[in-house]
Amino acid sequence: MGVGIEVQNLNAWYGSNHTLQDICLNISANQATALIGPSGCGKSTFVRCINRMHETNPIARVTGTVRIGDVDIYKDAKPVEIRRRVGMVFQRPNPFPTMSIYDNVAAGLKLNGYSNRRALDEIVEKSLRNSALWDEVKDDLRKKSGASLSGGQQQRLCIARALAVDPEVLLMDEPASALDPVSTSKIEDLIFQLKAQYTIVIVTHNMQQAARVAEQTGFFLNGRMVEFDTTHKIFTNPSDKRTEDYITGRFG
């Protein structure tokens, strides 16, 4: 099951660049939350703070509190543990090129020392079914490399890889921006199904996509969160002028 995320006074820097300023928001469990805003507004940095990927950059710094369920991720846990609870799907599909489809999905478990073969087989099948890729790849699980799939298939493979470690939250950083419309709609359908089991945070440049998949939407601008509300409210009756300007295409 998914869990809620509570963010308080989150600030993030790249070197001297203050990329996130005093972000506060509550993300509800088992819903999809979309983050929109122009390029460079801090959406990606924000999701990277939720699974502590931000700090893998040597010049990056974070302050503030992020609670996932009842865990304060910057106080009570190690980054590695957090990243197993908070899966991430990146903008460009990034399967491990040297691994088979099977090993790509199993990587998170295998590389953490999990070796029960029968259980692995089950988890791989379940994850690939959940990412709607199973029927397309079930015959070449071990024969084909993850890199031999099409772009859309690779992205679903990456989703399966993230699901295999059984996270509670799934972060998606523009998961469909490098994909064609058919693959994009498959990913969106997938987000609908995955909501039942995971809390989903999706960064997107595509406002129709945000409107289609998300219950809640946050609008970021210049490192600040301008507005956070139900998707319906944001797209029909935003309370901030800047949000309205952005969604009507007046800038950004």
Partner: peptide, 16 residues
């Protein structure tokens, strides 16, 4: 992106 993929599924850096 490959390094981030590994870190993103909770693989420790040395292992990755």
């Amino acid at each position: 992106a490959i390094r981030e993929a590994a870190l993103g599924i909770g693989v420790p850096n040395w292992r990755s």
